[in-house]
Nucleic acid binder design. Sequence first.
DNA 1: ACCTGAACACCGTTCAAGT
DNA 2: ACCTGAACACCGTTCAAGT
Lengths: 193, 193
Amino acid sequence: MRADALKNHEKIVEVAAQVFSEKGLDAPIDDIATRAGVGAGTLYRHFPTRDDLIDAVVKSWMNQIDAAADQVVASGAPARVALMEWFETYVSRISRNKGGPAKITSAMGKSESPIYSKCETLRLANDRVLSHLRERGELRDGVDSLEVCRLIGGIAVVADQGTLPSDSIHSMLTVVIEGLVSSDHAVGDSSRE
Amino acid sequence: MRADALKNHEKIVEVAAQVFSEKGLDAPIDDIATRAGVGAGTLYRHFPTRDDLIDAVVKSWMNQIDAAADQVVASGAPARVALMEWFETYVSRISRNKGGPAKITSAMGKSESPIYSKCETLRLANDRVLSHLRERGELRDGVDSLEVCRLIGGIAVVADQGTLPSDSIHSMLTVVIEGLVSSDHAVGDSSRE
DNA sequence: ACCTGAACACCGTTCAAGT
DNA sequence: ACCTGAACACCGTTCAAGT
């Protein structure tokens, strides 16, 4: 790749990250091209579809996701606490840009999507958390990791369109978590309070 | 209202229902105008925003929603069965047109939306089902009707974008339902099998 | 080999001119 | 009073012409 092409490529990704965070993932492509100082054709050469560009921008978040999942597993926290922490991280990461939850969740499990590998990273991180809890017998049987991603993604999508009361996400996550933990642990141990 | 205006109004709604079901709620407005045999300006006069048009089209579904909720309540079925039946109806109704789940769920609780009254109908129907189960002590405390609508709406949104395996919705609903039923009833009564 | 930007297409929305 | 449809705006995408 020629030096100017490489420079353009990097500049476009840098500017796209900025524009996406200001205007959301549906921001006009031309805004990005203009602010990156390149012609529209150049942007399309480097990133034929919007998803290719999103894929490049999203790349840097994924280490954080992995770290968060591993940390939750390492903490050894009980299922409810661990899941709430993990799911809140999950929601906040994919909601970093407006339109993110819808984009990411709709690409989940679609191997032909340009952002598929990022979705896989998410799904695998989620799988690690769930598997860990399942081994300890804290999870209901028949819980599928991909479905949990979609469920949490659905909550993030709803939260992303319009402003919800801030504790609303927490309440919805609570319902899902109660639905995930195994019934042996579900009955409130009143020794808590 | 003049006779020709009334006729146009009705024709537009009729054609819109057809076009929406073919191409989804994001179908080009002009397709509707053309097929209704009116100019674009006429359509905008009758329905200043897309949501006004959607509101008119959606109107006829709502009796079905009410009927379904009442029937579930009247059946006296146990919580899991009642909720699954109700939620499946809920999802299928709002998913009747592509883009429906997102439109409806994002308008939920926003009183300034042109389709607000339809969302209220949905929420109130949901509330009737939940209240009935709560009275019988089958529901966990602190469950808010609006949040449940958003949760189920989130599932419908995810299902609406891209084709999921057909039993995937059912699995996700199961998780939510397990999270909603009160723990007194949550422990598997093994007398079942 | 890569870049530019004018050109085209598509669609939402308005408004002057008609009846 | 209501309708028409040309006109404008906006944005995605392509491609002939440049370097």
